[in-house]
Amino acid sequence: MKKWKAILFDMDGTLFDTEQISRIAWLVTMERFHLPKSEQFILDLIGRTYQSAQVVFDAYMPKGWPQEEAYQYHEDYAMEYKKTHGPLPKCNLKQLFTALQEKGYRLALASSARRENVEFNLQHEGIQDVFEEIVVGKMVAHGKPHPDIYLETAKRLGLRKEDCLVIEDSKNGILAAHAAKMDVIMIPDMIAPDDELKAMCYQVMEKLEDILTVL
Rank of each mutant, 00 (worst) to 15 (best):
L43M: 14
S170E: 08
K138N: 13
V56F: 02
C164H: 07
E116D: 13
K155S: 14
Q54W: 10
K207A: 06
F33Q: 02
D10T: 05
W4A: 08
F16A: 02
S112G: 15
A113W: 00
I149F: 00
P62V: 14
T84L: 09
Q40M: 03
K138D: 13
A110C: 13
K161I: 13
T98I: 12
P36N: 00
A176Q: 06
M79C: 06
T84C: 05
Q40E: 13
T98F: 06
Y81C: 09
S111P: 13
L215V: 09
K94I: 08
A180E: 04
Q72A: 03
H85Y: 14
Q54S: 04
D12N: 07
T49N: 02
L165Y: 01
A25P: 02
E162D: 15
W4K: 12
A113I: 05
V56M: 02
G126R: 04
E102T: 05
K90G: 01
K138C: 08
P87T: 09
N92R: 13
K94E: 14
H34A: 12
L208Y: 01
V28W: 06
Y71M: 05
D129E: 15
K103W: 05
A192H: 08
Q72G: 00
E80M: 00
N172P: 03
R48I: 06
E209G: 01
Q20V: 09
E19N: 01
D12W: 01
D44E: 07
G104N: 06
I149D: 02
I174M: 11
P89G: 12
M205D: 04
P62I: 13
V56R: 02
S52L: 05
H34E: 14
L100M: 12
H34F: 10
E19Y: 06
A110Y: 02
D183I: 10
D10W: 09
E133L: 07
I21V: 15
I21W: 03
L157W: 07
H146N: 15
V214L: 11
P36W: 03
L15S: 09
I127S: 03
F97I: 04
M182G: 06
K181S: 10
Q72T: 09
Y105K: 03
V130C: 07
E206C: 04
Y77M: 12
E125M: 11
Q20Y: 12
L197N: 08
I24L: 15
Y71R: 11
K37E: 15
D163C: 11
P62R: 14
E39R: 08
L197T: 15
A78I: 03
E68K: 15
